[in-house]
């Protein structure tokens, strides 16, 4: 993975596999502290303590097509490489929260990359799942909530081409605005 947004896309796949109906993705950056935190939360089937303990082990997977599961270990590595930290909390039947914390001034910090592409690909192939994307920069915030978008759409599919293009531009413009407001 060359950028963190791809790790986020990958981790969100676990939430989808867990049968989540609502997935939250939060990016919080502080320029002054040189920190980034990424939190991916879902209301899927969750994991028991035994599974949580094994989930960062690359040789643990629930898949049947091969014997390794690299998504979570790779994501954990991206955070720890920067001197940051990683955690998973989960409750069976309630959901899972995956958090990664980065020191962005560390030489091994990966670029965040294209979060818009990650969000639009998630929405385009999972129209029935709701996503809440929150991007915070130095206290300013942008939120995109597909529940709000679907309410406006009144039954028009959220993954119809014109709507997806709108969502792409909507996220891009608001992200750019967050950067501009920097004092």
């Amino acid at each position: 993975m060359q950028e963190l947004s791809l790790n986020v896309l990958d981790i969100a796949q676990n939430s989808i596999k867990a049968g989540a109906s609502l997935i939250g993705i939060t990016m919080e950056r502080s320029t002054a502290d040189n920190t980034l935190s990424i939190v991916i939360s879902d209301d899927g089937c969750g994991m028991d303590e035994q599974q949580i303990a094994r989930v960062t082990d690359p040789f643990f997977t629930t898949r049947t097509t091969r014997k390794v599961g690299l998504g979570v270990p790779l994501f954990k590595m991206t955070a720890e490489m920067t001197g940051g930290s990683f955690s998973i909390t989960s409750q069976p039947g309630k959901g899972t929260v995956v958090s990664a914390f980065y020191h962005t001034d560390h030489i091994d910090m990966l670029p965040v990359g294209d979060m818009t592409a990650t969000m639009t690909s998630l929405i385009s192939v999972n129209p029935s799942i709701d996503f809440v994307y929150q991007s915070r920069l130095d206290g300013r915030e942008f939120v995109m909530d597909t529940r709000q978008i679907k309410e406006i759409l009144e039954g028009v599919p959220i993954n119809s081409p014109d709507v997806l293009l709108f969502i792409r531009d909507y996220i891009n413009e608001h992200e750019a605005q967050l950067e501009l407001n920097e004092e």
Binding site: L6, L9, D10, R63, L74, T118, S124, V125, P161
Partner: peptide
């Protein structure tokens, strides 16, 4: 149907998926 597991994503599935969506649109 685009493969979107860790292996697919690491190999570049996201731009492929978005290319299909855009071309179809």
């Amino acid at each position: 149907v685009v493969g979107m597991a860790t292996c697919g994503i690491a190999a570049g599935a996201r731009p492929v998926l978005n290319a299909f969506t855009e071309e179809v649109a």
